[in-house]
């Protein structure tokens, strides 16, 4: 009875979270939804006499893998939320048809075939779940285990190789950088000085507060574009900044 309640609650939560993962516009929300699904599954593992896997699920998935996802999301840019407008004709329709069909087929099939009562893991787990698993992993599956270790090392090396960028020219010195800045200024009139920090000469130094120029107008350069866009969507952007950003957009 207790298991049923847990299952139904977590099943509903995980399905909703999975749907949220698929249909939320922002990648960060998707990542959070995935975290919810993973945690729910961890609990379901524990319920099904798999405490070790539940722990590994939380540590490896919700801990390491999810962090990696978020890390890459931040690296790539959290503003890269994509629109949900489909560009490939028929893709969404057929994807949903196939998904529904797949779910229906699998569900029906499982519902029809599996009728025997579960044997339960009481016998298998009598020495404790972790020692029993360990015995299996280090005896029968030891070769696969060793291979996975090789796989992980290879993956680590591969990630390093892929993410590493070889420098093909000498590192620019401060002198080179300075010269490049002024060349750019001479050609395009780009300000050679650092960008103004937010809130300079302003009422407070919050990150979304634009700096004021000496003549009292706001400097749009001082506001992070990502934050500005978020705030524009939420309607909390300072009206002066919004106005200037809009002018810039129209200017383009």
């Amino acid at each position: 009875m207790g298991e049923s309640i847990t299952f139904w609650v977590l099943a509903v939560v995980s399905v909703i979270a999975a749907l949220g993962l698929v249909f939320s516009r922002r990648a960060v929300y998707s990542a959070l939804m995935l975290g919810v699904v993973m945690l729910s599954l961890a609990v379901l593992y524990a319920v099904q006499d798999a405490p070790f896997l539940a722990a590994v699920q939380i540590i490896v998935y919700t801990g390491a893998v999810m962090m990696l996802f978020l890390f890459v999301l931040m690296l790539v840019g959290v503003d890269s939320s994509d629109s949900l407008v489909e560009t490939i004709r028929g893709q969404r329709f057929w994807a949903i048809v196939a998904g529904l069909g797949f779910a229906a087929l699998l569900g029906l099939g499982i519902g029809n075939t599996l009728i025997a009562a579960p044997k339960g893991l009481a016998v298998a787990n009598q020495n404790g779940n972790v020692p029993s698993l360990a015995e299996l992993i280090f005896t029968r599956h030891v070769f696969a285990f060793e291979v996975t270790s090789a796989l992980l090392i290879t993956a680590a090396l591969g990630a390093m190789v892929l993410a590493h960028r070889e420098r093909t020219e000498p590192k620019p010195t401060q002198r080179d950088l300075s010269r490049a800045r002024f060349v750019e200024f001479g050609r395009h009139g780009k300000n050679p000085a650092p960008l103004p920090g937010p809130g300079t000469y302003a009422r407070h130094n919050a990150i979304d507060m634009p700096a004021l120029l000496p003549d009292g107008t706001v400097s749009p350069l001082s506001v992070n574009r990502v934050i500005a866009r978020h705030e524009a969507e939420e309607g909390t952007l300072a009206p002066e900044v919004a106005q200037i950003l809009q002018q810039e957009e129209e200017g383009k």
Partner: peptide
């Protein structure tokens, strides 16, 4: 995916 669904069917 469609192929997999058809296979299951």
């Amino acid at each position: 995916f469609v192929g997999a669904a058809l296979l299951v069917g």
